[in-house]
């Protein structure tokens, strides 16, 4: 009969051999598991954390104040006294285009037509057209944003207003604008369309709170950012 000593010598020896081979197998396994596309996916993920963070903000992220009316082209309308309304750029488009470097807005007396190009902002040294949300005659132009265009980024619904317009047909125009619940649903849809642009293989969403990131279009589409902008702002 075998002694305990012999038994231990044998079994422990076998166990140690197995354990050491496990170490070798594990190293191989690690490499094997990491191999392939996942490597590039991980690298891309690092790069795109900015978008990911932004997309997380989407739940409460794109501001959509209740009292405003919105046009599909992402401009807003706010009724003021009489039949004068204020017009501006909404939070979504401000984030989409990035840092606004300048504006090209019509002077007092010019006419705007709902759904047609009439104003533009400049980002990345490129002029970006916007669709006018109402019909009317320009009665005032925001001076502050000429000197500090980034006000549009910082306060798109307040100090960043673009022009004031006398809009006698506002009631009729309203049928072409989103408001309240409808506006929320519209923005949800926009958001989903934007997310479809982000490759699903990247997968993850970073969830620490942080400043929203500028220039979604550039982050998402790189050099083709202008095309993306035009697509979402409905410019041909």
């Amino acid at each position: 009969m075998q002694s305990l000593f012999d038994l231990l010598t044998y079994t422990k020896g076998v166990e140690y051999i197995i354990a050491v081979s496990f170490l070798a197998v594990f190293v191989w396994f690690w490499k094997f598991a990491k191999g392939g596309e996942v490597v590039t996916v991980m690298a891309e993920r690092e790069e795109r954390v900015g978008i990911a963070r932004l997309l997380e903000n989407l739940v409460g992220g794109f501001l959509l104040p209740k009292e405003f009316y919105y046009h599909q082209g992402h401009t807003w309308v706010k009724p003021m006294e009489g039949d004068v309304v204020a017009i501006g750029l909404d939070d979504f488009s401000q984030k989409l285009v990035g840092k606004i470097e300048g504006v090209k807005i019509p002077s007092v007396g010019a006419f705007l037509k709902q759904g047609e190009k009439g104003l533009s902002v400049i980002a990345n040294s490129t002029p970006i057209d916007l669709l006018a949300p109402v019909d009317g005659e320009v009665t005032a132009v925001n001076q502050a944003i000429q000197e500090a265009p980034d006000k549009i980024n910082r306060d798109p619904y307040g100090e960043g207003w673009l022009v004031k317009v006398k809009a006698p047909r506002f009631r009729a125009n309203r049928s072409g604008l989103f408001y309240g619940e409808l506006a929320k649903m519209w923005l949800d849809e926009v958001r989903n369309r934007l997310m479809a642009r982000v490759s699903p293989a990247l997968g993850t969403v970073a969830l620490d709170a942080g400043p929203a990131v500028f220039g979604i279009a550039e982050r998402v589409a790189g050099e083709k950012w202008n095309e993306l902008v035009k697509e979402f702002l409905l410019i041909e």
């Binding site: 594990f26 690690w30 997309l55 739940v59 997310m195 699903p200």
Partner: peptide, 24 residues
């Protein structure tokens, strides 16, 4: 809604972790 887009990526991550535990 946004979770529907990212769930596959998360699933892959979990699967990777599980595979290491299982080989061990």
């Amino acid at each position: 809604p946004q979770n529907h887009k990212i769930i596959d990526g998360l699933t892959l991550g979990l699967g990777k972790a599980a595979s290491f535990v299982m080989i061990t």
